[in-house]
Design a protein around this nucleic acid. Structure first.
Lengths: 148, 148
DNA sequence: CTAGGTGCAAAAGGTTTGCGGTTAA
DNA sequence: TTAACCGCAAACCTTTTGCACCTAG
């Protein structure tokens, strides 16, 4: 049984997928819903483990497939913060990511929409599609007992 | 035989390593020099293959070790742009990276020093150490014959 | 119907680790 | 002299691929 506000989202998801020639599958719906509810920028494997609870037969390769489709539809963005696994984020509003060097947690940082790109002129011919900014440092929990 | 301006740099590199308890080794000197001269943000393996020409016995694991030491000394920064291998950059001046989604090339983008962080207030307790901004899109070469 | 998607398992990348021998300080 | 580093190889983790079966449109 799916809540009403989700059926609306499913319609939009279905449309969004269709415009790019992707099919609307239960796996993609689960992955997308999970990512919308997650606030911790999970890795592909974390998405896999969580979706598995509702859908025990899903395969990790399918999760990658779903994530790729969602990224191509502009519904999900990749977050690459260090040498470790890529994380995923379904919040498409403009924001930055704070990455704690100590505990590896990721926090969203609100940004005034247009100040972000101020002062930056791309050379002619370059076409910008999306901006990703990461701030690296120490979060409140880790910053206290340390040299910083 | 090492050019004069490099011996100066070696002194600085040596000092910089020493302050963090790292040793000044020929491998670290080669890796750092190569990275300073490279303009294409090479991956660890690319650094390895190039340093190997001057130092055939060097191991890939040693390159990772050297890169880690240089990163910890603040002489080199990690550049994570997608799911692929991490790239490395010895230009520590503030700049952004443009990543072409088509050919995967990376270009430096100049930025006016202080406009970059304008408009962003970190929540209390967060300590920012470094900022990394990536712009994803199409470079001039790839943008021409395409839908964009 | 059938092109595209799924699950599974194996392979391919990328990075880290353990160890015996070497070296910068 | 000795803790740190090196080279090598194996292990580890993340992502991709190939294939037989399945299903959304």
């Amino acid at each position: 049984m799916i809540p009403v506000d989700q059926t609306e989202r499913n319609d939009r998801l279905s449309e969004r997928l269709a415009t790019r020639g992707f099919r609307f599958t239960p796996q993609r719906r689960h992955v997308y819903e999970l990512l919308r509810q997650a606030s911790d920028h999970p890795t592909a494997e974390e998405v896999f483990l969580r979706v598995k609870q509702a859908m025990p037969e899903i395969a990790l390769a399918t999760v990658y497939n779903c994530l790729d489709a969602l990224v191509q539809c502009g519904l999900v963005r990749l977050v690459n913060l260090h040498r470790g696994a890529t994380r995923y984020c379904a919040n498409m509003k403009e924001h930055w990511h704070f990455h704690c060097d100590a505990c590896e947690s990721v926090f969203d940082v609100a940004v005034a929409d247009d100040t972000v790109r101020a002062g930056v002129a791309l050379p002619w011919g370059f076409k910008a599609e999306r901006y990703e900014t990461a701030i690296h440092g120490l979060c409140p929990a880790c910053g206290n007992g340390r040299k910083g």
